[in-house]
Amino acid sequence: TTYYDVLGVKPNATQEELKKAYRKLALKYHPDKNPNEGEKFKQISQAYEVLSDAKKRELYDKGGE
């Protein structure tokens, strides 16, 4: 599973699309609303952290993490 899959976006997604997808999923899986989905929330946050940063995203796209 790639970070793009976690957020449900395509690899060519814009920053705005990433932000929108992250917010939607973060609300859905937030531990306050969904106590059993803490791990999913962490995955979503990690994916967004990497993909929202241009340098980290470039490194990730080249095969790094």
Rank of each mutant, 00 (worst) to 15 (best):
T1A: 13
T1C: 14
T2Q: 05
Y3V: 02
Y3W: 08
Y3P: 03
Y4W: 03
D5W: 05
V6R: 05
V6S: 04
V6P: 00
L7P: 00
L7V: 02
L7C: 01
L7A: 00
G8Q: 07
V9M: 05
K10P: 13
P11D: 07
P11L: 06
P11Y: 08
P11I: 09
P11R: 10
P11G: 05
N12H: 08
A13Q: 01
A13Y: 02
A13N: 01
A13W: 01
Q15E: 11
Q15K: 10
E16G: 09
E17D: 11
E17M: 09
L18N: 00
K19Q: 09
K19M: 14
K20A: 14
A21N: 04
A21P: 00
A21I: 03
Y22L: 03
Y22R: 01
Y22N: 01
R23Q: 15
R23V: 14
A26C: 13
L27T: 12
K28L: 12
K28D: 07
K28Q: 13
Y29G: 01
Y29E: 02
H30F: 07
H30S: 11
P31C: 07
P31Y: 06
P31T: 07
D32M: 09
K33A: 12
K33W: 09
K33T: 13
N34Q: 08
N34E: 09
P35L: 06
P35R: 05
P35C: 07
P35S: 07
N36I: 12
N36L: 12
N36E: 13
N36D: 13
N36M: 13
E37I: 07
E37V: 09
E37C: 13
G38N: 13
G38V: 14
E39R: 08
E39F: 08
E39A: 12
E39W: 11
E39Q: 10
E39T: 07
K40Y: 11
K40I: 12
F41T: 02
K42C: 10
K42H: 06
Q43W: 10
Q43V: 12
I44A: 04
I44S: 01
I44W: 02
S45D: 05
Q46N: 10
Q46L: 15
Q46D: 10
A47K: 00
Y48C: 03
Y48T: 00
Y48W: 12
E49Y: 12
E49P: 00
E49A: 13
V50C: 08
V50A: 05
L51A: 01
L51Q: 00
L51R: 00
S52Y: 06
S52M: 10
S52L: 07
S52P: 00
S52C: 07
S52I: 09
D53C: 05
A54P: 15
A54C: 08
K55Q: 14
K55S: 14
K55C: 14
K55M: 11
K56G: 07
K56V: 05
R57H: 04
R57S: 03
E58L: 07
D61S: 03
D61L: 03
D61H: 03
D61A: 02
K62V: 07
G63V: 10
G64N: 14
E65A: 11
E65W: 15
